Amino acid sequence: MPEGHSVHRIARQFDRNYVGRRVAASSPQGRFVEGAAVLDGLEVLSVRAVGKQMFLEFERDTWLRVHLGMYGAWDFSGEILVDPTIASANGRMGQTNQRGTDDAVLDDAGENSLSSIGAPRRARGHVRMSEQTSGLTREDEEWPPPVVGQVRLRLLTEVTCADLRGPTACQVQTPDEVAATIAKLGPDPLVDDVAAGEERFVEVVRRKPTPIGLLLMDQSVVSGIGNVYRAELLFRARVDPHTPGRDLPEDVVRGLWRDWVRLLAIGVETGQMMTMDDLSPDEWRAAMAHRDDRHWVYHRAGLPCRVCGTSVLLEEMGARKLYWCPVCQVA
């Protein structure tokens, strides 16, 4: 499932390529025909991401809400304008350059992690904006591009095409409905005032008997955290995922929020959920080249903990896989 960093990057891509332009909207799959008809011919006015959800504002007080869920993805083709706040003109990520690794790195899935923009995947000449990988669209592709597979919604400008596949939610909303949807979401460090968001997060977590491993995945408590960030945040804080929120010391809860602020910023910049600290340039390149080397415990069931050597455990929590160290994360 795309986590918060990917959705923010996707929103920035829409801001670069769609805001200020009119769109031809259609539903090739046929499951969003009425909604597409409402959007067809309208100008895109703004875009915002909150946690795992994205909201496109159109003229006539019309909004499109999209939640990619587990399997959703945006495929972009045509003219793709790169956000300069995310990548430099040569497609490399600023943070990686600062670490002295200027060359592109292809990971074990054939991804150029350094030119990733919110997790685009090279697919039939498109740029897929979902959860991993990278690539830029080909200049020689057919225009407009042929529809491939089940496309819920196609948004087409004169030069750019965005195809939405497999979302959990895709609906037209009024301004009041958008406000109501966002009001149900927890704080997002890239949307809300960071200090105010911290207070909201701390207040909610410290009165809940629910295990912190579930609270971090609750989008009404905090926005954007998914399975990978949950495991990594808890390990980095050395917190047992089963600990009730109300039993955690205040400084620990504040530390979780502040670490989320930091990791989310890194994810938006690099397009990868990099959660390892203090890596040498060579170690950084290796981690960017192999997903499983970017994390402390995620996807490491049965492997030795990078700190204590104990086997990392895997269990189900909240209907999702939870990875954690039974030694490092027990007080």
Rank of each mutant, 00 (worst) to 15 (best):
Asp259Trp: 02
Thr270Asn: 05
Ala49Met: 08
Val228Asp: 03
Arg152Trp: 01
Thr85Ala: 12
Ala25Gln: 04
Asp75Thr: 03
Met93Pro: 07
Arg285Phe: 01
Glu203Gln: 15
Pro249Arg: 12
Ala37Arg: 12
Val191Trp: 13
Arg99Ile: 00
Ala25Cys: 04
Glu142Arg: 14
Gln53Ala: 14
Met1Ala: 15
Trp257Glu: 04
Val151Phe: 01
Asn97Val: 09
Glu3Asn: 05
Val127Tyr: 01
Ala301Cys: 04
Gly149Trp: 02
His8Leu: 07
Arg262His: 12
Pro84Tyr: 08
Ala319Pro: 00
Asp188Glu: 09
Val50Thr: 10
Gly118Ile: 08
Glu158Phe: 01
Leu68Cys: 07
Ser6Phe: 11
Arg154Lys: 01
Pro84Phe: 06
Leu39Trp: 03
Leu45Asp: 10
Thr310Ile: 08
Leu234Thr: 03
Arg9Trp: 00
Ile80Leu: 09
Trp324Lys: 04
Leu164Phe: 07
Gln53Ile: 11
Arg294Ile: 03
Glu34Gly: 03
Asp107Gly: 13
Leu303Glu: 15
Gln219Pro: 05
His126Phe: 04
Met70Lys: 07
Ala36Glu: 05
Ser27Gln: 02
Ala265Glu: 15
Pro249Ile: 03
Ser46His: 13
Val47Leu: 09
Pro145Asn: 02
Glu57Trp: 00
His8Val: 09
Val307Gly: 02
Asn97Ile: 12
Asn227Phe: 06
Leu39Asp: 03
Gly267Met: 10
Val66His: 02
Val127Pro: 00
Val172Ser: 07
Ser27Ala: 02
Glu43His: 10
Pro189Asn: 06
Leu56Gln: 08
Thr137Ala: 15
Val7Met: 12
Asp102Ala: 12
Val172Gln: 10
Ser27His: 00
Arg65Trp: 05
Val205Ala: 08
Asp292Asn: 13
Leu185Pro: 11
Asp251Cys: 01
Val50Asp: 04
Ser130Arg: 11
Gln272Leu: 09
Arg285Pro: 02
Trp296His: 14
Gln13Ile: 11
Glu158Tyr: 01
Cys305His: 06
Ala49Pro: 07
Gly149Cys: 02
Arg121Ala: 05
Thr310Arg: 14
Ala195Leu: 10
Val204Asp: 12
Thr137His: 02
Thr275Ala: 13
Gln53Asp: 15
